Simulated assay, not measured.
Amino acid sequence: MQDHPLMVPKKILLATDLSCRSDRALDRATILANHWNAQLVVVHALQGSIEGEDLPSWRRKADPRRAAWQRVQQDLRDANQLDVQIVVEDAEPSALVLSTAERLGCELIITGVARDETLGRIILGTTVERLLHKSAVPLLVVKRRPRALYREVMVASDLSEGSRRALEVALALLPAAHVNLFHSFDVPFRGLMSNPAAVREAKRDDALMECRAFLAATPGLAQSGRSVGMQCESGSVESLLLELLQTRDIDLVAMGTQGRGYLSGRLLGSVALNLLNSLPVDMLVTRSPRT
């Protein structure tokens, strides 16, 4: 069965803990919601029951649900032209985000990271990792302060169906962006070769041929009528992308999963989590639809 054509979302979900760590995700969500003319669903999970109900009124703390509503409204005061729906419930955060996305038909989930260590690794946090494993819709993890729409997108691909889906989603969501396909390949036993440079170039030619075939077999690319650049290099995908980000003005890295409920495949698995934790750039993670 052929998938339905991909379109820009009409409803996106922002998962926020209302801390300063979520501000960048909030700004990105409002930029995208405005650009797409989409409804923005803001979800915040209260954790822990409301205490102090038997205390005198002057000793009771403010109702946390009401306080969270007010905080969301304050954070969105500059986005009053948006169609916003706020969901605040006492629940486990990832479960609330996933159930709300399914119940309301949200087509993209946007979230931030738990911590961004200075000159160090980015800590995704338990909620983000659970969303990565279980979300049926694309997940956008925002790390950088947004200034404009995404313009330069790199799709990290192992030439699997999961990464094909990631490419198609990136093309559909960002029709004005410049999209490139990045593929890393191995040169085994390089130290035992008499001419490793020649072997590497031959492997690179083979990888480029495989990438061309991959792009030619991607329906969403043909439907878009756009051209996609290719970059093939030998080595560790994590190291290569880190180097590339230092030399290229890349706004977003996209990657896919196989849709089996957890990140998998040669590129994905633990490598995907390393990329998500180490790359200092926004990441778009997409699951393949179940067959």
Rank of each mutant, 00 (worst) to 15 (best):
M7K: 10
A114T: 06
L159G: 05
S99I: 13
S234N: 11
T111H: 08
A136Y: 10
P138W: 04
P56N: 03
E51A: 14
I50G: 00
L252R: 01
T118N: 03
T286D: 00
R212Q: 07
L132K: 08
G162S: 07
I110D: 08
L32Q: 03
L268W: 04
D251F: 14
D206F: 09
L132Q: 06
L242P: 10
H44N: 09
A79T: 09
S227P: 06
W58G: 00
M1A: 01
R103T: 15
I110Y: 04
T127F: 12
K61D: 09
R190A: 15
L32W: 07
D27Q: 05
D249R: 15
Y150F: 12
R147W: 03
P5L: 04
N80H: 12
M193Y: 15
Y262H: 12
A177L: 08
S278Q: 11
N37S: 11
D90Q: 15
D116M: 12
T257M: 12
A222L: 12
H35I: 00
D83P: 08
L6A: 08
E51R: 11
V142P: 01
P9E: 02
V228K: 14
L171D: 02
T291E: 08
V169E: 02
E243L: 03
P289H: 13
S264K: 10
A170D: 05
V43Y: 07
A33K: 02
L263T: 04
R130G: 03
R190D: 13
T118Y: 13
M154V: 08
D251M: 09
N80F: 04
T127I: 13
N195M: 07
P64G: 11
G259R: 09
L149A: 07
S236P: 07
R71Y: 04
L244C: 11
